Simulated assay, not measured.
Amino acid sequence: MKNLKPLLAGALALACVPALAHPAAVVHGHGFAAGFMHPFTGLDHVLAMLAVGIWSVRQPHARALPLAFLAMLFIGVVTGVAGLEIPELETGIALSVAVMGVLIFVAARLPASVGALMLAVFAILHGNAHGHEMPAVASAMGLLAGSALLVEAGRLLGRVSPALLLKLAGAVIAAAGVMLAASATASGIA
């Protein structure tokens, strides 16, 4: 239990980082490197990508889910580049993080079609936000590469971590998602 304290402290510290992976939050370059680094600059994106990887490991069609997620992330980017505005986008993104955390916490196994549909919606939300801020093709390809790396890191964590640690990670991810949703809602009201 002593070894979990630094992990929990680090996770809680990360939860205090502002969400920067959203439209107009920061100015980004438009090359591959800027796109690749972008997924690592927003707590919501980092947690969502890791959670997708962790959760997908124990699902039916576990190998196909991350690829489908990344394909739909690209579709989401295209919708953002095309100018599609999704209402309450920030709140939807934050809630996707919270839902993924809960699914990990309860070790939920969903039917393949339900899991794929859920991940498709989450991917489109995340991709749309990034498409608004990174419209260049090179940055979009970098974004997908960085996101794929985070999803694979999550898959590795999901395969090698003990169940109790995954449960704790799910709880931390869910709590961070709820805090991000509250922040998005509060900024939308102001």
Rank of each mutant, 00 (worst) to 15 (best):
A19F: 11
V137F: 15
R58K: 06
M100R: 00
A174F: 02
A175T: 07
P66M: 12
A174S: 03
A171D: 02
S139V: 03
L164A: 11
F32P: 04
L117M: 15
H130P: 10
A138T: 08
G92L: 08
E88H: 14
L110Y: 04
M72G: 14
A68R: 14
G170H: 05
H132Q: 09
V99N: 00
L117Q: 04
L125N: 07
F69M: 05
A94S: 07
M141T: 04
A107I: 00
A25N: 07
A82D: 08
G115N: 06
V137G: 13
A186M: 01
V172P: 00
L150T: 06
G115A: 13
A51E: 02
L84N: 07
A62Q: 10
F105P: 01
G115D: 08
L164S: 11
G83S: 10
A129W: 09
A51R: 04
A123C: 06
N3W: 10
A68S: 11
G80W: 12
Q59W: 01
A62V: 08
V114L: 12
L165G: 08
G142Q: 03
A120D: 00
M49P: 13
M118L: 11
G83M: 08
F122Y: 04
A64M: 14
A138C: 05
K5H: 13
L157M: 15
R63F: 13
S56A: 15
P6Q: 09
T91A: 15
V77K: 05
H45Y: 11
M37L: 14
V81G: 01
A15E: 08
A182T: 13
P135R: 01
A64T: 14
P23D: 11
A140Y: 02
A98R: 01
A112H: 07
V78A: 14
A24S: 09
V26Y: 14
K2S: 13
A48W: 09
L47F: 02
V137K: 12
L14A: 08
T185K: 07
A138H: 04
V78G: 09
L12R: 10
A138N: 05
V27A: 14
F105I: 04
V46K: 08
S113P: 03
L8A: 06
P87Y: 00
I189H: 14
V160T: 12
A34S: 13
K167V: 05
A136L: 01
G170Q: 00
L156H: 14
N128R: 08
A9M: 14
A24E: 15
L7N: 00
K167S: 05
A68D: 02
H22Q: 12
S113I: 10
V172I: 06
L67K: 07
E85F: 09
K167Y: 05
G35P: 00
G188W: 05
G29H: 09
L143A: 11
A19Q: 14
L84W: 10
C16D: 02
H130Q: 14
V52H: 00
H38G: 02
A182M: 15
S161F: 03
A148D: 11
A13L: 15
